[in-house]
Design a protein around this nucleic acid. Structure first.
Length: 575
DNA sequence: GCCGTTTTCGGCCCGACTGTTTTCAGTCG
C-alpha cells in the first residue's frame, strides 16, 4: 500500500491533536497543522517519485517533519505518533470534537479526572462528578450533556454547495431586508465556491442604529441562537446547519469581506504580510497604528498590501498569495467562455427530456455545440442503448443538424468500463461516434493497483475521448475509489485523451486539487453538465466554479474551444 | 517545529463571545 498525501496529513493532524491535549507548545502544534494543510493542497503525490531530500523544501516542512514524512513513506508508520497514542487515552482525541471542549478542558478531564472518552464523560456528568471542577461551570456541563445525548450520526456534516445555497440565500435575503442593513453577503467557503459547505457565514454592513441580530430572532427557519453579542451571532437553522453572522460598518466592509471569506490560511498569509510591514490587518481594516489605510473595499485591502485582488475561488493558500505579489495570477475561466457541453443525456436512457428539448436547452444556455452521450446497454438501471438504438439516435441527430444553423449536435455515448477495463459497446459501434466518454459505474472497491490498471486499459482503447467523473465520488454518499492519479494524468497526457470536470452538484469530480494537478500535467479538461433534464445545464456553473478553484484558464478547457478546433482535438484522440 | 528585507534566536495573525472571573483564560472562527 502506498502512502498518500492525505495519510501523511492525517498523521500530522493526529499528532497536533494529541500534543495539544498534552499541553505542548502552541507553535509546535501549529507547525504540524500547517504542514497537514499544505499536504492536502499539494497537486502531486509526495510519496510517488519524490526524492526525500526535496521534502524539506516544501513550505512549512523543516528537517524534522521531512524525516517524519520519510519514515511514513518508508515504513507506513510513525514512531513518535505511536508513542503519543500510548500516552493519551484512545478516546481523548474524540472529546476535542465536542463543542466547548478545547485542549485545556480535555487535559483536565484526562489527567485530572481519568475521563478518557465520551462514555466516561457521560457517566461523570450523570454522577455530578464535574460540579465544582474548575472550568466546568453549569453552562458548559449543560452543553456537553446535550451534545452527548445527540446521536453521533447527527454530527455536523458538510452539505454540497448547491444544497447549502437553498438555506443561505433566504437567510441572506431576510437579513438584507432588515431596516438599516446596507449590504448582506454570504461569505466563507460558500463565496470561495467550495464543493461542500460546513456552515454559513453571513456578513452584514449596517450602521449603529440597525439591530439585525435582534431581527434574526424572528427568522422562521431559526433553530437556536448559541451566541449573540452586538456585532456577532452564531446559531443553527432548523435543519441543523450552523451559521455565523457578523455586522460591521461601511468603512470596514471590504476588510471584513476579505477576512470572513477566508480561507483561514489565506487570511493568515495576508496578516503576515501586513505584520512584516509594520501594519495590522483585521476585519476592521488595514492599519498603521490608529490610521486606517484600507477597509471600505476588498480590492483596496489587497492593493494596500501590494497584492493583486485574488478571486475568492483561489483563496486556499495554494500559492495564490505569492502569485498575487508577482501580479501573476491566472486569468480564470469564465462561464461565458464555454462553447459547448460534451456530456448530456436524453430520455432515450435515464434522462427526462427529449433529444430536441435538450438541444434547445443547450442553445438557450449560450452554447454552440453539444454532445449527446446516453448510456451504453450494460448499465442495467438506466435502460442503456444497444447498437441498434444508438444507430437510430444517430440518425435523429443527423436530421436535427440538417435543420439547424449555427449549432451542432455531436454523436456520443457514455460507455461503461467493465471490471477488466474493456468497454461495454463493440468497437464497430464506437468508431462511428464523434466522441466516446468512458466511466466507471461498478466494481468501485477494487484495489488501487487493479482499479488503476482497469481505467488505464480503457483509456488505451483507440476510440476513447474522455474519462467521465474520474474519481467516482458522490459527496456525502460515496468515497472516491482508489486510483493512482499520477499515472492517470500521465496516461491522459500521452494518449492523448481528456478528463472531465463533472458539474453535477453531488459529483464535482475532478475535485479542485486534482483539476490543478491535471492542468500541471498538461491534460485538457472537459467541463460537463452531465445534464439529465433541460434545467440541468445550470450544472455548468458548478463545473466552472470547480475548475476555477483548480486555477483553470480558458486554454485548459477542451469545450472552451471553437467547434473546428474541438473537432481537431477529438480526432487527435484517434491516433 | 518553522523561519529570516528587523532576527540562525526569538519571534510566530487577530478579535468576539462565554463563563466564571474577582481581571481573564478558553474556545471558536
Amino acid at each position: 500500500m502506498s502512502i498518500h498525501n492525505a495519510d501523511i496529513a492525517a498523521a500530522f493532524e493526529e499528532i497536533a491533536d494529541l500534543l495539544s491535549i498534552q499541553g505542548a507548545n502552541a507553535f509546535r502544534i501549529r507547525a504540524y497543522r500547517r504542514a497537514a494543510q499544505m499536504l492536502r493542497s499539494l497537486p502531486h503525490e509526495i510519496a510517488a517519485g519524490t526524492d526525500p531530500a526535496v521534502y524539506a523544501s516544501l513550505p512549512g516542512i523543516g528537517a524534522d517533519l521531512a524525516s517524519k514524512i520519510a519514515e511514513l513513506v518508508r515504513t507506513g508508520e510513525l514512531d513518535s505518533l505511536n508513542r503519543l497514542r500510548r500516552e493519551v487515552p484512545a478516546g481523548a482525541r474524540d472529546l476535542l470534537s465536542l463543542p466547548g471542549l478545547g485542549p485545556v478542558h480535555v487535559r483536565t478531564l484526562v489527567s485530572g479526572l481519568r475521563i478518557g472518552d465520551r462514555a466516561a464523560l457521560r457517566q461523570a456528568l450523570a454522577a455530578g462528578r464535574l460540579a465544582g471542577v474548575r472550568g466546568f461551570g453549569p453552562a458548559l456541563r449543560g452543553r456537553l450533556e446535550a451534545a452527548l445525548a445527540r446521536p453521533a450520526s447527527e454530527a455536523a456534516r458538510r452539505l454540497p454547495l448547491s444544497q447549502a445555497a437553498q438555506y443561505a440565500e433566504p437567510l441572506r435575503d431576510f437579513l438584507a431586508a432588515v431596516p438599516g442593513v446596507e449590504r448582506a453577503e454570504i461569505v466563507g467557503s460558500y463565496r470561495r465556491g467550495r464543493d461542500t459547505v460546513g456552515d454559513l457565514d453571513v456578513l452584514l454592513c449596517a450602521g449603529d442604529a440597525a439591530d439585525p441580530i435582534a431581527a434574526l430572532r424572528g427568522y422562521a427557519d431559526l433553530g437556536a441562537l448559541n451566541a449573540s453579542g452586538r456585532t456577532k451571532a452564531a446559531g443553527v437553522l432548523r435543519n441543523g446547519l450552523a451559521f455565523d453572522l457578523r455586522v460591521v460598518a461601511a468603512e470596514s466592509f471590504g476588510a471584513a469581506l476579505q477576512y470572513f471569506t477566508g480561507s483561514k490560511e489565506h487570511g493568515i498569509r495576508l496578516r503576515q504580510i501586513a505584520h512584516a510591514r509594520g501594519l495590522k490587518l483585521s476585519e476592521y481594516g488595514l492599519f498603521r497604528g490608529k490610521q486606517r489605510l484600507a477597509g471600505r473595499r476588498e480590492e483596496d485591502v489587497y492593493a494596500a498590501l501590494g497584492l493583486a485582488w485574488v478571486p475568492p475561488e483561489l483563496r486556499e493558500d495554494r500559492g495564490e498569495v505569492a502569485a498575487a505579489e508577482r501580479n501573476a495570477l491566472p486569468q480564470l475561466l469564465l462561464r461565458s467562455e464555454l462553447r459547448g457541453d460534451l456530456h448530456v443525456h436524453t430520455r432515450a436512457t435515464d434522462g427526462n427530456d427529449s433529444l430536441a428539448d435538450m438541444v434547445s436547452a443547450a442553445r438557450a444556455a449560450g452554447l454552440s455545440y453539444v454532445a449527446i452521450t446516453d448510456h451504453s446497454k450494460h448499465l442495467g438501471i438506466v435502460h442503456g442503448l444497444d447498437a441498434g438504438r444508438l444507430a437510430r439516435q444517430c440518425d435523429a441527430i443527423d436530421a436535427l443538424n440538417a435543420r439547424m444553423r449555427g449549432f451542432t449536435v455531436l454523436k456520443g455515448a457514455e460507455v461503461d468500463i467493465l471490471a477488466d477495463g474493456s468497454l461495454a459497446l463493440p468497437d464497430s459501434v464506437l468508431a462511428q461516434l464523434d466522441l466516446v466518454i468512458v466511466a466507471v459505474h461498478s466494481h468501485f472497491d477494487l484495489s488501487e493497483a487493479k482499479q488503476t490498471a482497469r481505467v488505464l486499459r480503457a483509456l488505451e482503447h483507440p476510440c476513447v475521448t474522455i474519462l467521465a467523473h474520474p474519481s467516482g465520488r458522490l459527496l456525502g454518499e460515496r468515497e472516491p475509489y482508489t486510483l493512482d492519479f499520477e499515472r492517470l494524468f500521465a496516461a491522459a497526457r500521452s494518449r492523448p485523451c481528456y478528463l472531465e470536470v463533472n458539474g453535477q452538484p453531488q459529483r464535482l469530480d475532478l475535485d479542485d486539487v486534482r483539476v490543478k494537478a491535471a492542468i500541471e500535467h498538461g491534460v485538457l479538461l472537459s467541463l460537463a453538465s452531465d445534464a439529465h433534464s433541460v434545467e440541468q445545464f445550470a450544472n455548468l456553473d458548478g463545473a466552472v466554479r470547480q475548475a476555477r478553484r483548480g486555477w483553470a484558464r480558458r486554454t485548459d478547457v477542451l469545450n472552451a474551444r471553437p467547434l473546428a478546433e474541438l473537432r481537431r482535438l477529438l480526432r487527435a484522440t484517434r491516433g
